[in-house]
Design a protein around this nucleic acid. Structure first.
Ligand SMILES: [Mn+2]
Ligand SMILES: [Mn+2]
Ligand SMILES: [Zn+2]
Ligand SMILES: [Zn+2]
Lengths: 157, 157
DNA sequence: ACAAGGATTTAGAATTATTCTAAATAGAAC
DNA sequence: GTTCTATTTAGAATAATTCTAAATCCTTGT
């Protein structure tokens, strides 16, 4: 059983567990989100799905996305007021929005960091979700090395 | 010199420093944001401002808000896909969105916490902004005390 | 097999926060 | 006072998302 089949099976289980049907549309939407984990928007997902299923409608893509989110298989990512993006990474993680390229990267969040953040809340505040987003630019590794050397020099002064 | 006059002077300075004019519209928009720091939306600000300046337009409110944000006097707060809210708290802080009441509360963020969060980024990632938002419910102090006692009991088992 | 009946999909209209456009107004500078 | 530019204003436009209502699909019961 390959990875796609396994994911499909997991999707089918989640859906039927919620009393929903595993339809071809839901499967193909989920598949394209898993295929290229670049946090696509609904429009981008629509475009990718259409190449495999030319008759699907944008409304259906929105409907499927809502279903996948409700089943807990996909997470919505809202950055500023840009169109909602969709992420199949189910681990607790933050997002880094690269201003230069527009790309969105996953940033791993250790469990203890999450706990620390929750501990900042005053008594009585009970957070069901914590969202952390960075915005900036992702320099090249080469630029970063040079930056590091400059910092070392200035620190040595 | 009272607080309102001081804020107006600060606003005028920021504006003229940026080559912009301190207009009555900009002043009144800034004033209502400072008056009730409840993270109002543009529509709410429009309603509050209209009572003092009935001829102002919504477009002007949006224009003034954009100006205030660019001058660094007000911060935009985007939570999920709800209308943008505006916050005059210039300290680094996070937001807590109370699902039950819809209220948005400021959460203080220690400087070292911010540094820790930035340190989660892989080399090459340079964040110009870090946004942290909690969502949940704010129980009453009474409920919170009971919760604490229950936790103590279960911990003692 | 056939007939409900409900779930899902679909196209297109509606919604809504925000931005844009272009004309009117206000104010500063000369 | 005239000119020049910034600002305000009303209304149109935009764009992501949601809604509506009809068509299609599937399951279930007979
Ligand atoms: Mn961007
Ligand atoms: Mn809410
Ligand atoms: Zn992600
Ligand atoms: Zn705030």
């Amino acid at each position: 059983m390959n990875s796609t089949a396994k994911n499909c099976a997991a999707l089918a289980k989640r859906l039927t567990d919620s009393g929903l049907r595993p339809t071809p549309q839901r499967e193909v939407v989920f598949k394209v989100i898993l295929e290229k984990r670049d946090h696509p928007t609904a429009d981008e997902i629509f475009a990718r799905v259409k190449s495999q299923m030319p008759t699907i409608s944008l409304a259906t893509v929105y409907n499927c996305l809502e279903t996948l989110v409700q089943c807990g298989l996909v997470r919505q990512v809202n950055l500023e007021r840009a169109p909602t993006r969709y992420c199949p990474n189910l681990h607790e993680h933050a997002h880094f929005h690269d201003d230069a390229t527009g790309q969105v990267h996953d940033i791993n969040l250790p469990a203890d960091t999450l706990k620390q953040l929750r501990s900042l809340l005053p008594p009585g505040f009970d957070a069901s979700t914590v969202e952390l987003a960075f915005r900036g630019s992702k320099g090249s590794a080469r630029a970063k090395l040079a930056e590091g050397r400059a910092a070392a020099r200035s620190g040595a002064n």
